[in-house]
Write a protein that binds this DNA or RNA. Structure first.
Length: 799
RNA sequence: GCGCCCGUGGCGGAAUUGGCAGACGCGCCGGAUUUAGGUUCCGGUGAGUAAUCGUGCAGGUUCAAGUCCUGUCGGGCGCACCA
């Protein structure tokens, strides 16, 4: 009997939809479980097998949870604002709205074809007015609380996309969207003051269950460091040159200072600096370099000494030279450093090149060769001399600095404020009005959403202006405060805006009074389990934790951290082992797999192919193994016999498998859970018959992975109701172990025999049995040690 | 440079965390069914004639090491002149 998966899968997808079994119930008495997967960007290319793997993990867990009696919220939506759609619109002349709707429709039908158990009544689309109204609302709340500010600064700018990028979007000096080289440009930028939340984001990590490397990456990204600010006097003026250092204990080793080329003090004292021409030339040279070149192409230190401008070391009164160099960044610390060439490799290289003194203050290295960054006894350091503990030295120096009023303890973060505007059409309009009298005025809350106007021309302006700037009817408005003629902000929000709070909207997606009802937020609470890609750990994850924490602080949500648990799936690589990409032609289309082999096979294979958290290459031949597996399960119907219980010779195997599958699913070890089911199937087919009760148990366990075939078999053998809201398998712990076990017997760690002994044999009994099996090997030898690890191994050490 | 992770058959990967290395699947070999191919079913499959040897390499700890320690080589990810 051939398995007609196409019609069976269609049939059950329809039944699930008609019955509403996957609808989450607000306020149900059952325990709640909120499973979240990263909603897709609906690109024109359609779904990728990577999406399937990303969703299948929590899909399996959600199906299991429902069967365990939970009220499960497993939603899906579309993160639909973004540049690819806009670029496509520019190319084809189709409106982004049309393109987006078409792509969402395509994604929806593909997702349904795989049989995911999403609650389709809660779908969200970040580009719909009733959604982005609340994105704008949250933005205005932040504005109200002083977390939004505007600054004219050098920004990362992508000349190809004609758009300003955040640091997160221009990692490595390349545009995250088109991979062009990013340049620095001076622009008006809207910032969200995420740095104000740095400590909260750091502390919050202690209360959540994220994968250790996810946590580590966020900690590194926030990049908290503790040290000191120290004020150096500028010789001959009242000016102070303020620096940040993590090693105030090395202050006696400071022999020069370095400022970033853009440091404002340089302009202030331009007439005092004798070689200003040289300085200007150096600055021009630096400005030409991109951030990427400045940081990546570390070759030789360059710089210019400021003549007529020197500083005084506050701990010993020595006058020291001041340089400018591009190895010091304006964006970190104070934009100036104290240089300790003996104990910092960069300062060392600079000192060597410019012939500056190198004074050792920590013993232990050879400073004639290189800087020594290790610990050791303090020397040449006055009151610190003789100390060997770094912590003590730092504390002593800090006390000294504070007493003299020349410095204090300080904290710095690598994380920078979030550049929040884009000069683009397809995004949420920033709901701010520029009034000549009142300045920046927020659009009143009752006028939200500030709708994105329909336009025909999505081309950005030549100087990087938003397409919205060309629409007079949008731009020209009255100031909400004073009524004067005013101009609307024409930039839109970045793609990350809509995804920064979407998990809250799923809880109450149709609410038109609030972003989500407070009682419903209380009922559903934190996302219990969030799964997604590692690439979102430092952007989306940080952003959304920030937004959520802000909403908590102003009393709008009842819990501070949005996600209780976070896991990540590994990539699916192309059959050639490379990352899948269109240009390499190694992309696997999930649609084709569903059509050729069925959704159950696709679902099973993406979880069986390897460790869920690791990357694994797609294999056209391996996927057939899963097809065979599903077909063999289908064929069990041919050998089914009457009987509700387990047959004696399979009972232990069923209990064992039930335990293993239950446990492995929780640990996301889907590959071994499926392997255990395959092993059990092999045992059944070896035996040649299966009772109805056994088959029911089997399809119950397999259901989260391959629900269509399982539902069909369940129905055909007279199972009650649907497995989708059936009951998860129970097992008896005492029946997961055999009464007798086979134990290997080693002599001096080498395997010599195996013996079958009762599971509860004592050590003496086991060893006796073991020795009996290896009498030949023990002949004429003296036994030194006898080891029995219960249930594991017998090892006799003899000489 | 700093931080994290990983090196196991022809391939993807297992190994209850120190206890029979190679589960499960793919591939391959042989057999059955088939006119043949495909499908399906059965048997075999780390290397070696064997004793034995085998988890990137070299040491170490241990009765026992894929697992722990030291060093080294190779690969991946993240951050990066961060003061």
């Amino acid at each position: 009997m051939d398995y007609d998966f196409t019609s069976v899968e269609k049939k059950w997808q329809q039944r699930w939809e008609d019955s509403g079994v996957f609808h989450a119930v607000d306020g149900s008495d059952k325990p709640k479980f909120y499973a979240l997967v990263e909603f897709p960007y609906p690109s024109g290319a359609g779904m990728h097998v990577g999406h399937i793997k990303a969703y299948s993990g929590l899909e399996v867990i959600s199906r299991k949870r429902r069967m365990q009696g939970y009220n499960v919220l497993f939603p899906i939506g579309f993160d639909a604002y973004g540049l690819p759609t806009e670029n496509y619109a520019i190319k084809t002349g189709l409106h982004p709205r049309v393109v987006t709707d078409r792509n969402i429709e395509k994604f929806t039908s593909q997702l349904k074809k795989v049989g995911f158990s999403f609650d389709w009544t809660r779908v969200i689309d970040t580009t719909q007015e009733d959604y982005y109204k609340w994105t704008q609302w949250i933005f205005l709340k932040m504005f109200e609380h002083g977390l939004v500010f505007r600054d004219k600064t050098l920004v990362n700018y992508c000349p190809s996309c004609k758009v300003v990028l955040s640091n997160e979007d221009s990692q490595g000096g390349h545009c995250d969207i088109c991979h062009s080289e990013v340049v620095q440009k001076s622009k008006d930028v809207w910032y969200l003051r995420i740095t104000a939340y740095a400590d909260k984001l750091l502390e919050g990590l202690e209360t959540v269950d994220y994968l250790p490397n996810v946590k580590q990456q966020q900690v590194n990204w926030i990049g908290k460091s503790t040290g000191a600010f120290v004020n150096f006097a500028v010789a001959g003026t009242d000016e102070t040159l303020r620096i940040y250092t993590t090693r105030p204990d090395t202050l006696f080793g400071v022999t020069f200072m370095v400022m970033a080329p853009e440091h404002p003090l340089i302009d202030k004292y331009a007439d005092k600096i004798a070689n200003m021409d040289e300085v200007r030339a150096y600055r021009a040279e630096c400005a030409k370099k991109t951030e990427f070149e400045r940081t990546q192409l570390v070759k030789e230190k360059t710089g210019v000494r400021l003549s007529g401008f020197s500083a005084v070391n506050p701990v010993n009164g020595k006058e020291i030279p001041v340089y400018i160099s591009d190895y010091v960044m304006m964006g970190y610390g104070t934009g100036a450093i104290m240089a300790v060439p003996a104990h910092d490799q960069r300062d060392y290289e600079f000192a060597q090149k410019f012939g500056i003194d190198i004074i050792e203050v920590i013993k232990g290295g050879d400073i004639s060769k290189e800087a020594y960054a290790g610990d050791g006894e303090m020397v040449n350091s006055d009151f610190l001399n003789g100390l060997t503990d770094k912590k003590t030295s730092i504390e002593k120096m800090l006390a000294f600095l504070e007493e003299k009023g020349i410095g204090e303890k300080g904290v710095q973060y690598k994380m920078k404020d979030w550049a929040f505007n884009r000069q683009r059409y397809w995004g949420e309009p920033i709901p701010i009005v520029h009034c000549p009298h009142c300045g920046m005025v927020p659009v009143p809350y009752d006028q939200l959403p500030l709708k994105l106007p329909a336009v025909k021309d999505f081309q950005p302006g030549s100087d990087g202006e938003s397409p919205l700037a060309k629409i007079d009817s949008f731009v020209q408005c009255k100031c909400p405060k004073c009524g004067a003629d005013a101009r609307r902000e024409t930039d839109t929000m970045p793609q990350w805006a809509g995804s920064s709070w979407y998990f809250l909207r799923y809880i109450d997606p149709h609410n038109d009074q609030r972003f989500a009802d407070f009682d419903k937020l209380k009922y559903w609470g934190q996302v219990d389990w969030y799964n997604g890609g590692m690439e979102h750990v430092t952007r989306h994850m940080i952003y959304s934790r920030f937004w959520h924490r802000f909403l908590y602080d102003i009393g709008e949500v009842p819990f501070p951290e949005p996600y209780a648990k976070r896991t990540a799936q590994g990539l699916i690589l192309g059959p050639d082992g490379d990352k899948m990409s269109k240009s390499k032609g190694n992309v696997v289309d999930p649609n084709e797999v569903v059509d050729a082999l069925g959704a159950d096979v696709l679902r099973t294979y993406v979880l069986f192919m390897g460790d869920y958290e690791k990357a694994a290459p797609w294999s056209e031949t391996s996927v057939k193994g899963c097809k065979r597996f599903i077909d063999r399960v289908w064929n069990l119907q041919e050998i089914v016999t009457d009987g509700d219980g387990y047959s004696p010779d399979l009972e232990i195997a069923f209990h064992k498998t039930a335990k293993k599958v239950s446990d492995d699913i929780e640990a996301m070890k889907f590959n071994t859970a499926i392997a255990a089911l395959m092993t059990l199937l092999n045992k059944i087919t070896d035996k040649g018959s299966v009772t109805r009760g056994e088959l029911k148990a089997f399809v119950t366990m397999l259901d989260p992975f391959a629900p269509h075939v399982c539902e069909e078999i369940w129905e055909r053998i007279g199972g009650e109701g649907m497995l989708a809201d059936g009951k998860w398998i129970a097992y008896d712990e005492s029946k997961t172990v055999d009464a007798t076990i086979e134990v290997p017997v080693q002599v001096c760690g080498k395997l010599r025999a195996t013996v079958t002994i009762p599971r509860d044999a004592t050590a003496d009994e086991a060893i006796a049995a073991g020795k009996a099996a290896i009498t030949a090997q023990l002949e004429g030898k003296q036994i030194l040690k006898e080891i029995y690890v219960p249930g594991r191994i017998i090892n006799i050490v003899a000489k």
